[in-house]
Amino acid sequence: MGIDRREFIRISGLAALLGLGGKGAFELLRPGQVEAALKPEAGALSGKRWAMVVNMQKMDEATAQKCINACNRVHNVPDFKNPNDPKNKLDPEIANRYEVKWIWTEHYHNAFVEDQTNLPDKVKQMAFLLLCNHCDNPPCVRVCPTKATFRRDDGIVNMDMHRCIGCRFCMAGCPFGARSFNWRDPRPYIKDTYPGYPTREIGVVEKCTFCAERLAQGLAPACAEASGGTLIFGDLNDEKSQVRRMLQKYFSIRRKVHLGTNPQVYYIV
């Protein structure tokens, strides 16, 4: 058998290339189901088009804060302004840069930059709860180079943080500022680590997932649960759902509709 060293290296090199690129080529030619997508289990909440309605007529600052706290707790969202150990204290400007936000408040003029002048003054003075809009046509999903961000059939725009390469293309793509990056290790800034949800490592992007993990257990999203009926979560596809009835009855607005991403978070004003 005459296989010299040069030939051996050539063959093994080619084999390695095929091994690396082969699966990729296969997926490209015959795309299948995204591996990270889950099939609902028995007892899980299922819907065809999940949406959130924020009833600003009932909203006040205390309620908004309750929603934020509930979300932060069950998702281990760090608070960079309050480290557990004083030696990890950050300069306030840096803490702002690192901030991870799943659900937070912004003044009306910042939440709705296109200014709808016909709204009552009262509304214009309110702080609005913002979260991922779970767009029907999400730019973040379009730009992600690894499908780490993907849209589920029920409308939830979800993330696989184990696949994310941290390129932050999605952060540039999101017109709502709803995405956060782990600029440093978040763990020293989590007060009480909640065992039901993983903490994150440095270098990955994260955002609101409409509590996909809770829906799978038959629970409503944490913010909706804590809001005492101010945040209503439901299936827009279902005619009898509360979200559908609320939107039919009251006037609602959404953020940056003109961009065509079709946000699924509605604000009744």
């Binding site: 690396l20 990729g24 180079p145 696949r163 994310c164 390469i165 990955v204």
Partner: peptide, 25 residues
């Protein structure tokens, strides 16, 4: 680009999960 990545250890994901709708691909 490598230096800018949050998780350079996962760079091969771009080839493992090729995504033609992403301009980065």
């Amino acid at each position: 680009v490598l230096v800018d990545m949050g998780r350079p250890d996962r760079v091969m994901n771009v080839f493992k999960y090729p995504t033609p709708n992403s301009v980065m691909f």
